[in-house]
Simulated scan of single mutants.
Amino acid sequence: MSMADVFAPVEARNRAIVMHNTWGHLAPEPRRIYRGEILFAHGEFGDLVVLRSKFRGLPDSPWFYEHLTDFASDKAFKRRPGAVLRFEGTYTMFKNGNGRFSGKVRDVRI
């Protein structure tokens, strides 16, 4: 067991405390349903490009950003490079910190 393994749980807890103290006021309200849309693309060189994200009443936060990029990456990288996609639906964050998007993802004709 390395020293990094020993300190990892403490560092993770401290990181969570600092994130909450810094950006906690921006965190999505647990179990509230936010309606909105995301316009994103699977870039030509294999990258994810979020073009627009609009959810009524939901401020940007590290939690939402992480959930959004995980969701968009999962959907975009199943498509061909250069694909532009649009998600319409809802986002909900739970008390355990997990987030869920529910709705439809469609290809946008360009």
Results as ranks from 00 to 15, higher is better:
residue 75 K to S: 09
residue 109 R to F: 10
residue 8 A to Y: 05
residue 91 Y to E: 01
residue 7 F to V: 11
residue 17 I to P: 09
residue 64 F to N: 01
residue 3 M to K: 11
residue 108 V to N: 12
residue 40 F to L: 09
residue 42 H to P: 07
residue 57 G to P: 01
residue 56 R to M: 05
residue 55 F to Y: 04
residue 6 V to F: 15
residue 81 P to I: 05
residue 97 G to P: 00
residue 105 V to D: 10
residue 18 V to E: 13
residue 60 D to K: 02
residue 25 H to D: 11
residue 98 N to Y: 14
residue 92 T to L: 01
residue 1 M to D: 15
residue 17 I to S: 13
residue 5 D to C: 08
residue 100 R to E: 10
residue 95 K to C: 13
residue 70 D to C: 13
residue 71 F to N: 03
residue 24 G to S: 06
residue 89 G to C: 01
residue 106 R to G: 12
residue 3 M to P: 05
residue 65 Y to S: 09
residue 77 F to A: 09
residue 78 K to Q: 12
residue 91 Y to R: 01
residue 75 K to T: 04
residue 57 G to I: 02
residue 33 I to D: 10
residue 68 L to V: 02
residue 48 L to K: 01
residue 72 A to T: 04
residue 26 L to F: 04
residue 77 F to G: 07
residue 97 G to L: 03
residue 39 L to Q: 08
residue 91 Y to I: 01
residue 64 F to K: 00
residue 100 R to Q: 10
residue 73 S to F: 00
residue 105 V to I: 12
residue 46 G to P: 06
residue 101 F to H: 03
residue 73 S to T: 08
residue 69 T to N: 08
residue 65 Y to R: 11
residue 30 P to G: 08
residue 43 G to N: 06
residue 2 S to I: 04
residue 96 N to H: 06
residue 5 D to E: 10
residue 25 H to T: 14
residue 64 F to D: 03
residue 35 R to S: 09
residue 24 G to I: 09
residue 99 G to L: 04
residue 99 G to C: 02
residue 93 M to Y: 00
residue 80 R to L: 13
residue 34 Y to T: 07
residue 86 R to Y: 00
residue 28 P to Y: 03
residue 47 D to S: 09
residue 94 F to N: 03
residue 17 I to W: 10
residue 64 F to C: 01
residue 90 T to A: 02
residue 59 P to S: 05
residue 41 A to Y: 02
residue 23 W to L: 09
residue 85 L to H: 00
residue 16 A to R: 14
residue 110 I to S: 11
residue 20 H to A: 15
residue 37 E to S: 15
residue 90 T to N: 02
residue 33 I to Q: 13
residue 69 T to Y: 08
residue 14 N to K: 15
residue 7 F to E: 11
residue 53 S to I: 00
residue 67 H to Y: 07
residue 85 L to T: 01
residue 13 R to F: 14
residue 19 M to C: 14
residue 35 R to T: 09
residue 95 K to T: 14
residue 73 S to G: 13
residue 21 N to M: 12
residue 98 N to G: 05
residue 70 D to T: 15
residue 82 G to A: 05
residue 88 E to R: 10
residue 10 V to W: 10
residue 71 F to T: 03
residue 44 E to Y: 12
residue 82 G to M: 08
residue 80 R to N: 11
residue 1 M to I: 09
residue 110 I to W: 14
residue 9 P to R: 00
residue 32 R to M: 08
residue 32 R to E: 13
residue 62 P to E: 03
residue 36 G to P: 02
residue 103 G to C: 08
residue 55 F to T: 01
residue 54 K to Q: 14
residue 80 R to M: 13
residue 16 A to T: 10
residue 51 L to C: 07
residue 85 L to R: 00
residue 44 E to C: 11
residue 16 A to Y: 03
residue 21 N to W: 12
residue 52 R to T: 08
residue 102 S to L: 12
residue 58 L to V: 02
residue 100 R to S: 12
residue 72 A to K: 00
residue 33 I to L: 15
residue 2 S to V: 03
residue 20 H to K: 12
residue 96 N to S: 09
residue 82 G to E: 04
residue 106 R to C: 12
residue 7 F to R: 08
residue 29 E to I: 10
